[in-house]
Amino acid sequence: MKAAILPDFGQPLALEDVPRPVPETDEVLIEVEVCGVCHSDLHIAHGDLPGFRAATKPRLILGHEVVGRVVEKGAAVVDLAIGDRVGVAWLHWACGECEPCREGLENLCRRGVVTGMMVDGGYAEFMRAKASHTLRVPDGLAPEQAAPLFCAGVTVYRALKNAQVRAGQRVAVFGIGGLGHLAVQVARAFGAEVIALDVAESKLALARELGAAATFNVTDPDVLKAVRKLGAVHVAVVTSAAKAAYDLAFKCLRPGGTLAVVGLPAEPLQFAALGIVSNEARIVGAAVGTREDLRAVLALAAAGQLQCRVETQPLAQVNEALDRMQRGDIQGRIVLRCC
C-alpha cells in the first residue's frame, strides 16, 4: 500500500510502498478514504515538542483525523461490521482502568496511546485501529466533513464544554482558522453570542458568515476597548498559537470569566496572579476529547449545526499541505484523499 512516511524529524514525508497492516484480534483494518491534516502533525513531524518527540515511533505514518471503511476485523470484534464507515481520532486506545479513565477522563489516560504518533495513522491507503475506539460516522455526513471533527472539532467542543459555556453568554474566539471556525459554530450551538477576532479580514468575513455577532481585527489598537464596551466576555477560547492572542484574550475576560487554552505557543504563557485573583478568572485546557465528546460532535454535524470548510488534496501532495499549514495559508482545513 502507499503511505506517507516520516523518515526523521524535520524531513519531508516520503511516499512509499509498505506492507498492508494485519489487524490484531481486537482491531479493525480500515481502508482510508480521507485523513485530515492537523497542526499537531507539524509538531510531531518537526519534533519541536519534547513530549511528542519522545513518544514518536520511528518511520511513522502520521494522521489522526481518519475516515474510511472497515475491510477486515479481528476475531474478537463484534460491534463493527465489514463495510461500516468509521472514524479514528487522536486517542488510539485508553486503558479504562487508571484513575482518569474511571473518572470519565479517558483522554488523560496514563497509559493512553496516540494515533499517528505512537502508532501509525491515516496518511496511508490502509490503517489498523482498536475497534473499541473506532466510531461509526453518521449516515449522510460526507467523509471530508467528518474527518476534521475527529480532532479539530472535538478539541474545540471539549474546550467550550470545560469552560462551561451557557446560552446567552458572550464567547470570544481568537483565531478563525481550522479550529476557530469550528469553535464559532460550536459556541453558537451552545446558545452563546460569538465575538470573533483574527488578523485576517478574510477569516473575519468567514466568522460573520458562520454567525458571529461581532468581529474585530486584533491589529486595531482599540480592539480591547471595543470588546470591553460589549461587556467583555464570559469565555475566551484561543485557537491561535500566538502568545499575543493569549495576552489579549485574558484582558478581554469579564469578572469570573474563563480562558480556554487550545493553541500551543512556543513560549510559556504568563498571567499576573493579581489579575487571576482579582477577577476570579479561570484557565482551562482541552486535551482533544473523549469518545463521548466525539459522539456529541458528530451528532451536531449530522444535525447541520457544524460544518467544516475543507479543501481536498491527494495523499501525494501531503508535503505541500503541511507547508501551507506552516505558512497559515489555509481557510479551514485540508483533508487528504487517500484512496
Rank of each mutant, 00 (worst) to 15 (best):
V318D: 00
R254A: 15
I276A: 11
G285S: 10
A299E: 15
G263A: 09
A321D: 13
R309K: 04
V261C: 10
A281E: 04
A299K: 13
I276H: 06
G285K: 06
E292Y: 05
V288K: 01
G275P: 04
Q317K: 12
Q270S: 14
A281G: 08
A272G: 15
A303W: 06
L274E: 14
A321V: 10
Q270W: 01
V277Q: 12
A316T: 12
L315M: 07
E280R: 13
P314R: 12
P268W: 10
L298H: 03
A260S: 11
A272F: 10
V318M: 05
R291W: 06
F271A: 06
G263N: 11
P314F: 14
L315I: 14
A286F: 09
D293Q: 06
P255H: 12
L264S: 13
A260M: 01
V288G: 00
A303F: 03
T290N: 08
L253H: 02
A302S: 08
Q270T: 10
A260K: 01
V318Y: 00
Q317N: 07
L264D: 05
Q313P: 02
R295P: 00
G285T: 11
L264W: 14
I283Y: 09
G285V: 10
V284A: 13
V262P: 05
A260Q: 04
A321R: 01
V284C: 14
C308W: 00
V318L: 08
P268T: 10
N319Q: 04
L259F: 08
A273Q: 12
R291K: 15
A272R: 15
F271Y: 13
R291E: 14
V297L: 07
A266K: 12
A281W: 04
Q270L: 09
T258C: 15
L253G: 12
G285A: 10
G257P: 05
T258G: 05
G256D: 08
R282S: 14
Q317V: 00
R291V: 00
G289L: 00
V284L: 13
A272K: 13
G263R: 02
A281H: 11
A299D: 15
V310W: 01
V284D: 12
L298D: 05
P268D: 09
A316Y: 10
E311S: 10
L274S: 13
T312V: 08
R291S: 04
V261Y: 03
R282V: 02
F271T: 08
L274N: 13
E280V: 11
L322V: 07
R254N: 11
A299N: 11
D293P: 00
F271G: 04
P265R: 04
L306N: 01
L298I: 06
C308K: 00
E292K: 09
G275K: 03
Q305P: 01
T258F: 05
A281S: 14
L315T: 07
L259Q: 03
G304A: 10
L253C: 11
